[in-house]
Computed example of a mutant assay.
Amino acid sequence: MSERTNDLGQPVGVELAGWTARPAPPRTPMQGRLCRLESYDGARHGQDLFAAYALDAEARNWTYLGYGPFATSEEFARFAEATYTGDDPLFHAIIDRETGRAVGVASYLRIDPANGVVEVGHIHFSPAMQGTALATEAMYLMMRRVFDELGYRRYEWKCDALNAPSRRAAARLGFTYEGTFRQAMIYKGRNRDTAWFSILDGEWPAIRDAFESWLDPANFDEAGRQKRRLDARRG
C-alpha cells in the first residue's frame, strides 16, 4: 500500500488495490477449548440464559443495556425471539463446554461487508462467566472469525461512556480508544455519551498472539489463576 495524491497534489489516502467486499458473518458455530458460540435458538438456549441471568440478583448487568431486566422466563423468551434471531444484530449464545449450558450472549452488528467493518455488541455475560477465561476465549473466537476467516479491516466496540467495566474490558482485550460521541443516544429515558474503540486488521496479529498465549493452559495454575495478564502478553 502506498500514499497517493490527486492531480492537484492533495492526499487521497492509502490505495487498497484488490479490495473486494467481504462475506457477511455466517451462522456456523465457533468452537474453542472452553466455550462454543452458537447462533441463538430459543428452544436450545432460552431457559439456560434466563437462569444464568437470574444469578445477577441485583440486575446490575442490565444497567447499560437498552432493555431488561425481565421478570419471567416467558417475558424474556418473547424479547429474545424478537431481538436475538435477526441477521443484524447477529446474536450468538455462549455455551460453557463443561456444562453444555448457555451462559451469555454477544452479537455482531452494524455489519458492513463493503467496507470490511463490523461491531461487537449487546454483550451480556452472566455471573457464571464473568471474569473467567471462558469469557476471554469467547471474545477471541469472535475476533478470529472477523479477521482470519472473513478478512474484515476494522472491528468496533462501543459502550456507554459511564460504563467503566466495559471500558476496562475493551482496553484489556486490545481495543484502542478513539473518542466519545457526546449525546449520541437516548435509552431508558436517559442520555448516553458513547465511547468508541476499535481493532484494525494490521493490529490483529499481535493481539491474536497474545490471546493464544494467554489462553494456553500453561498460563494458569492448578487453581485456575492466570500467571500473566493478557495485556502484559501484548507487550
Rank of each mutant, 00 (worst) to 15 (best):
F220P: 06
A17I: 13
G13D: 06
W214I: 02
W19M: 08
Y64Q: 04
E156V: 08
G224I: 13
E119H: 13
S166K: 03
R145M: 01
G189T: 04
S198R: 04
Y187L: 04
R192L: 00
F147H: 04
V103Q: 09
R44W: 09
C35T: 12
R145W: 00
N219A: 02
L49C: 10
E3Y: 11
W157R: 01
R110V: 10
A184Q: 07
S126V: 06
M129I: 15
P127Y: 10
Q130M: 12
Y187T: 02
T20Q: 15
R60D: 15
R168D: 11
N191L: 07
G224V: 12
G174V: 04
L141F: 02
R154Y: 10
D201L: 11
G86P: 02
P26M: 00
A77S: 15
A138N: 08
Y108D: 04
A169T: 01
E203T: 08
N219Q: 02
P23I: 02
F181G: 00
E149V: 11
Y64A: 05
C159G: 02
E222S: 14
T176E: 15
Y152E: 07
W214D: 02
D56Y: 13
L37N: 01
R101V: 01
W157F: 05
N115T: 14
W214M: 05
V146G: 00
E119T: 13
W214P: 00
A77R: 14
V146A: 12
M1R: 14
Y67F: 14
R44C: 11
G224W: 10
R182Q: 11
A161N: 05
L230S: 08
A102E: 00
A128P: 07
Q10L: 12
T83E: 13
T63G: 02
E222C: 09
Y155R: 06
L34S: 11
R172T: 06
L230N: 06
Y152P: 03
E119I: 11
D160T: 06
L141R: 02
R190L: 04
R36F: 01
E81H: 12
W214E: 00
L34I: 07
A51Y: 04
G13A: 02
N61A: 15
